[in-house]
Design a protein around this nucleic acid. Structure first.
Lengths: 217, 217
DNA sequence: AATTCGGCATGAACATCGTTCATTTTTCGA
DNA sequence: TCGAAAAATGAACGATGTTCATGCCGAATT
């Protein structure tokens, strides 16, 4: 049968075995892959280099993961967690518009600071037909929910469903500006201009939201 | 020396030789690659399959292009041209907000209809350090300028530079919503909801723009 | 018309990937 | 202590992009 059943199996089960000795192979591989992706991007992650850096055989990788894709998802999950933390740290409990702007700027800042890792979130594609693991989809969706509180403050009348959709839309809009702004394939946006345009976007959206909220009252 | 000097060399120079007989190898390869990318995405483009489909030897590809990357850029340039045409067709010379919405919907429609080709525009990365050809950067920047007319109508006071930056920002925001909305890696957005959220985004941005314009008068 | 010559096409060969699997080594409970 | 199960090993496989010595063909020259 071989039900893979990652998601939450080996991490805790064998935590005892690696307590004093070297950490578990699986975790070590994720650590090294994370550093590699952070330094050289997704394209820099090679099975043989990874095995050499981990001090294990090439085939050992495939005893810990079914794929390199699975390893990449694991690395991306960590990146998502750091991104979540960065957004949470930027969250100011003040005015809603300020909170939205702070989170947008935190997103841009994270993308700049950890650009290769951040890029890997969107560059990576799993083979066609392969289902996205639920734990990964959850991690992605948690990102959007960070916008929920400011939106609830701005639009108290909306139900949770509509707020979630709006949160996703606003997040996507900010992501688009950051993603195309950092893309060198287009004429590079000067950093100062990108900062400014992100502020413009937030101001426009916030103005629209306030108008929307006024219409509902 | 072997100065490659693509950009505009062989297309016209040898047009006579392929007038009655088979078309030039270079154009044939781009045609086939375009169909392959449209059907199977960037990942489906293989040098050997391409040579077999074109009825030429494997090495012949590299007499027409320096790289497969160069071929991909040519395919992407055609996709950009079709996207431009789609945006122009959607352009309505009426109210600015309607024009913006029409172009945003045309963008989403194009991405849906030609999803693999559209994806290839953003999935493809050229090797690190390789400069983006000027003709490709120009084609990309032409896209943004499509928003210039509606923006000039909404914000008559702004100079061309600021309008160009704003056009880029709005385009990027729409792109972000479409890109993340069509991404299956996240929980798939139902098509109807995506249509709706794109409308929400445009409405919010347009409201913000009108407020901005009112402030300037 | 014969001959030379230059450039293009050829496809086997090479380098580099991810992945597999027969084999060896290690682990650990009876 | 021993034997079976699990894990690790690394050579081998198949795919892939790219190169290069070789052959071929057409045009220019004599």
């Amino acid at each position: 049968m071989f039900m893979p059943n990652w998601e939450s199996s080996l991490n805790e089960k064998n935590a005892d075995a690696g307590a004093d000795r070297r950490t578990h192979l699986r975790d070590r591989l994720i650590d090294i892959a994370q550093e590699t992706v952070a330094a050289q991007g997704l394209a820099g992650l090679k099975a043989r280099d990874l095995a050499a850096a981990a001090g294990c055989a090439l085939g050992a990788i495939y005893t810990a993961f079914h794929d390199l894709d699975e390893l990449v998802l694991r690395v991306n999950a960590r990146t998502l967690a750091r991104l979540e933390a960065a957004l949470d740290a930027a969250f100011v409990d003040a005015e809603a518009e300020q909170a939205l702007e702070a989170m947008a700027r935190a997103y841009l800042s994270f993308a700049r600071k950890d650009e290769p890792s951040w890029r890997a979130l969107f560059e990576h594609r799993l083979p066609p037909g392969a289902p996205v693991p639920a734990w990964y989809a959850d991690a992605r969706n948690r990102l959007f929910s960070r916008l929920d509180a400011p939106l609830a403050q701005l639009l108290p009348g909306r139900d949770a469903m509509a707020r979630a959709a709006l949160a996703r839309t606003l997040f996507s809009a900010v992501h688009g500006v950051v993603a195309l702004g950092l893309e060198e394939k287009i004429a590079e946006t000067p950093p100062k201009l990108l900062d400014e345009q992100l502020g413009v976007l937030i101001r426009l959206l916030a103005a629209g939201l306030m108008m929307e909220s006024a219409r509902l009252i």
